[in-house]
C-alpha cells in the first residue's frame, strides 16, 4: 500500500509546488470563473427570490468551464523537456501516477470553488451556503478531477488538445454535471425535485466511484505506446 500512496503524494506535492510557483492554472481558471459570474450578475436582473433558483446553474457553469481550463494545463508541465517520460520511467504503478495527478487536480478544483463561492455570495446576496452544498461541491470536484485527469492525459498528445479536451470531457462528465446541479438546487431551495436530493447525491457518488475505478485503468492503457 505504501508503494501506491507515497508516489501519489510525491507527485501531488510536486504539482502543487509548481503551481504555487507559476500560478499558470489558478490564474487563468479563476479569471474565467469570475468573468462568468460577473457577466451573469450584469446580464440578469436578479432579485433576492430568484437567486436560489439560478445559483446552481451559474455556479456550476463557472466551475465546469474553469475546471476544464485548469485541466487543459494539468499535463503541460509534464510536457516540458519530456518530463512525462521521466515520470513514466519511475518504478511506480500507472495508478499511482494517475492518482497523484488527480489529487493535485482535485486540490486545484477545491481552491477554485472556495475562492469563487465567496465572490458569488457577495455579488448575488446569496445566503444559502450549507454543509450539504459544500459536500456536493466536493463530490463534483472529485468527479471532475478524476475524468479531467484522464482526458487531459489523452488530449496532451493530440495536436488540437485545446479543442479535444472539452469535446472528450463534457460528454463523459455530463451525468455528474446534471447530478451536482440538481442536488445543489435541491439543497439551496430546500425543495423536493424529480427524484429527490438524496438520490441525486447518490448518483454523483456512484459515478465518482465508477470513474475512480475506470479512469486509472484507462490512463494506464493510454500511457502505453
Amino acid at each position: 500500500m505504501r508503494e501506491l500512496i507515497r508516489p501519489v503524494f510525491v507527485i501531488a506535492w510536486k504539482d502543487i509546488m509548481l503551481e504555487l510557483r507559476t500560478k499558470d492554472i489558478m490564474v487563468s481558471a479563476l479569471i474565467f470563473a469570475l468573468m462568468v459570474i460577473v457577466i451573469f450578475n450584469f446580464a440578469l436582473n436578479i432579485t433576492p427570490t430568484m437567486v436560489d433558483s439560478l445559483a446552481p446553474g451559474i455556479l456550476w457553469l463557472a466551475f465546469a468551464f474553469a475546471g476544464v481550463l485548469a485541466m487543459g494545463r494539468a499535463f503541460i508541465a509534464e510536457g516540458d523537456k519530456g518530463s512525462l517520460d521521466g515520470l513514466l520511467l519511475c518504478p511506480v504503478s500507472r495508478d499511482a501516477i494517475f492518482f497523484g495527478k488527480m489529487t493535485s487536480m482535485f486540490v486545484f478544483m477545491v481552491v477554485i470553488e472556495s475562492l469563487v463561492l465567496p465572490i458569488f455570495v457577495v455579488l448575488f446576496n446569496f445566503d444559502s451556503i450549507s454543509f450539504n452544498l459544500i459536500a456536493i461541491m466536493l463530490l463534483g470536484a472529485l468527479g471532475f478531477a478524476t475524468v479531467g485527469t484522464l482526458f487531459s492525459s489523452i488530449a496532451f498528445n493530440l495536436r488540437s488538445r485545446e479543442i479535444m479536451l472539452p469535446l472528450l470531457f463534457f460528454p463523459m462528465v455530463t451525468p455528474i454535471l446534471i447530478g451536482v446541479v440538481e442536488a445543489s438546487s435541491g439543497v439551496i431551495t430546500d425543495t423536493v425535485n424529480v427524484i429527490g436530493t438524496g438520490r441525486w447525491i447518490g448518483l454523483i457518488v456512484v459515478f465518482d466511484a465508477i470513474f475512480l475505478v475506470v479512469c486509472p485503468w484507462a490512463f494506464g492503457v493510454a500511457m502505453e505506446e
Binding site: 508516489p7 509548481l18 516540458d80 523537456k81 519530456g82 518530463s83 521521466g86 520511467l89 519511475c90 511506480v92
Partner: peptide, 21 residues
C-alpha cells in the same frame, strides 16, 4: 529530452525523482 521540470531547481528535480524511487 532531459526529462526535467523547468520551473524546479536542480536540487528539487533530483529530490523529486529520488522520492519517486
Amino acid at each position: 529530452n532531459p526529462m526535467l521540470y523547468e520551473d524546479m531547481t536542480c536540487n528539487e528535480n533530483l529530490r523529486f525523482f529520488g522520492n519517486m524511487f
